[in-house]
Structure formats: structure tokens, C-alpha cells
Computed example of a mutant assay.
Amino acid sequence: MDSVTPEDAIKLAAIRRKTDVCVLDAQQQMRTFLADTLEELGFVTCECAHLAELPAVLGSRLPDIVVIGPSGGGIEACEIVELLAADDFDGHVLMLGSRVSPMVAAVRELGKGLGLRMLPLLATPFGRDDVRACIAALVPSALTPIYPANAAEALAATTLELLYQPKIDTRTLGLSGAEALMRPLHSPAHVSPNDTPCLGPVLEIVEQAISDWRYFAARYGHFEIAINLPIAFVQDPEAIKKLCQQIPEQSAFGGLIVEIDAAEAVRNLRPVRDVARLLRGRPVALSIDNVGMEWPLLSELDEFPFVEIKVARQLVGGCAGDRRKQAICRRIIDLADAVGARSVAEGVENRSDLVAVLEMGFSLAQGSLLAAPMSSPRSARSSVQAHRS
């Protein structure tokens, strides 16, 4: 499949999650300003430059809010409002324009008359604070914290749900696999780190992840499952033995990626290398997660034990406007290329960073802009069964 351009990536990434806001304005600069401001508030945005592009958005994923920019005033704004009403749009409509413009007032009255939920006018000129204040009541509520699935969280598994953060191929924006994450279902109890994690709960998580792989593989084709495990588990020969026993024998199994935090891995490089040797020939491989300023230590290894280098979100977040972060990311990518490993950008949360990640040449990317965490099929089935009962 041909590689996608950064412009295509922005469009595709915007529709991978539910589109919250559609920004419609003829001027690119205005659309970008509004989209960036809204994304800072937690919305996912898409853009339309002209009325003709709006039906495609309404026909794919219905937005919660349609923003009609200042240059969309006049006759076209009337047509936009009429199109939304004809499509039975039940979201909100935010119009931007002058308070003293008769045309703006007429369009807003037309929208109300057609039964649209017109928000108060955002009067020009305006700034970011004005945009925030105008839609404050519609800002998405904070998401429940999500944590990498590891042994510590497994000890509180009765209050946690297994989710999967998609890993996206940056060449095609196709789904490559997913990382298992944990999210509290109820009031999250504090879980202390455990240097000698209990083997049972961790293996139960692995067992569920492999079970869920069968569902994902049937739906998406080739699919890798990744799970973050503490170094104490990886160093336990009995744990590794039992882990390998759980791996399906089907040739279609996409593989299990065991992620180890970089801070732990660099302090235990020799045993990590021994584990990598033990896993050779099996559909299980090691990934080093959350790589930051310790990356030079990895370049000194004679034998590289990892198939994947995941760059910490602290380096990826804001990289579009930070040359220092870009320089570090490029060096890590060069290291990955040199040792035949994949490079993964974690925490891609906005369009600017996505473009930078694509241009730098990361192999894979993760983040809410590209795709929201997917529920465990087991959780979904349990919910359906509970509802039916």
C-alpha cells in the first residue's frame, strides 16, 4: 500500500475517533486556529473549507458541534444551516461573526427557526479564551486515568478493566496491533509498586490479552498484542516458562510484545539480553518502553535485545515546535534503524505533532488523535450479557 502524506494523515486521524467538532471556514489560518484551540480543550476536530465538503462529514461520523467561521457568513452560511436541518443534525451549532451584522443575526434566527441548537454567538474579534468560554459547558469531561497493564495493577484486577491502545502504522495509518492498558472501573484504589509481583494475576492478564487477540485477529487480520511487564517478572525463569506456554500455536498468531520500562531495562541489560535469547524462535519479543534521555546507553549494546524502541510521550508531545525534542527523536529513530528495530512514537495528541512524527520517520505511533483505546471484547460481551439478564 502506498504511504500516506501528512495531509492525508490529518484527515484520516480525525475520523478514527468520533469526530466531536467540525470547523467550517474558507480560510485555512482560521480553521487551524480554531482546531488547535478546540483540541487543547479535549475535542477531536475535522475541517471543511467549503459547504460541498460538509455532507461527507455528516455522512461518516456525525459531529457534536459544527462551527461556522467568520468567512462562512452570508448566503453560504444560510445553506450550511439549511443542510444541517435537512440532515436532522441534533448537535450544537456555533456561529462566529460580528454582533452588528444583520446577515449573521438572520442566519442564527434561521437556524433557531429550523430547530437547530444554536449556541450564543462568538463575536469577532475573539481569542482562545473567548472560544473556551463560549463552549465551556460542552468541553469533554476528563477521561478516567489509564495505566499500562503491569503486575502492580494486576493485583487490583477486581477494580480494573483491560483496554487496548491501538498502534498505528505510520506509512499506511493501518492498525498494526495494540498495547494492553488498565483502567479503574470504580473508585481506583492506590496500588503500591511491587518488586516481586505475584505470578498468578500477571498470567491471568496475559491469558485474557491472548484470548482477546483471537477476536482482534478475526476482525482486523494480522494483529500484535503488547503488554507492559515489570522487570521482576521478566527475570523469573518460571514466569517466562509459563508465559511461553500460554502462546497459541496457530501460525496466524501475530505475536506478543513484552514491554519493559526503559529505566528498569537499562539497569538490567544483561538479564534482559538473556531473556531475549531465551525467547528466540518463539512468537514473543521484547520492547523497551518510555525511552527518554537514557537512549545513548542503548547505542552501546553489542547485542540489541529489543525489537522495538518506544519513545516517551515527554519527547513526542510538543515535538513539532521543539527542535531539541526533534533532534533526540531523530537519533533514537536512527538507532532503531541501525539495529533493525521499530521506532514507536507514544502520546501523539495533536495534528502538529502527528505531522512531525510522520516526517521524522517513526515506524508506528500511538495516541488519542489516531485512535482511542478499544474495549476488551470480554468486557463488551460481559456488558451485553448483563444487560440481557
Rank of each mutant, 00 (worst) to 15 (best):
M1W: 03
T5E: 05
D8V: 10
A9F: 01
A9I: 09
C22E: 05
A26E: 13
L34E: 08
E39F: 02
E40V: 06
E47I: 02
H50E: 10
L51A: 10
L54M: 15
S60D: 10
S60F: 11
S71Y: 12
I75F: 07
L84Q: 09
D90M: 06
V93T: 13
R99N: 10
S101K: 06
P102F: 03
V107I: 15
L110A: 02
L119R: 12
D129F: 05
D129I: 12
P140N: 05
A142C: 06
P145R: 04
I146E: 12
Y147G: 00
P148T: 08
A152E: 12
A152D: 13
E153H: 12
E153Q: 13
A154V: 01
K167L: 13
T170S: 08
P197I: 04
I205A: 14
A209V: 15
A217R: 12
Y220I: 01
F223P: 06
A226M: 04
I227K: 02
I227Q: 02
V234D: 04
V234H: 03
P237D: 11
A239K: 01
K241Y: 13
C244T: 15
E249K: 14
E249G: 02
S251H: 08
G255P: 09
L256H: 07
E259D: 13
I260W: 07
D261K: 10
A262V: 00
V266L: 11
N268Y: 05
P271I: 13
G281S: 04
I288Q: 01
I288M: 09
D289G: 08
P296G: 07
L297N: 04
F306E: 04
V307K: 04
K310D: 02
G321D: 07
Q326F: 01
R330D: 01
A338R: 12
V344C: 00
A345G: 05
G347F: 09
G347S: 08
G347M: 09
V348C: 03
L358R: 09
A365D: 08
L370I: 13
S376Q: 05
R378A: 10
A380F: 01
V384Y: 09
S389Y: 06
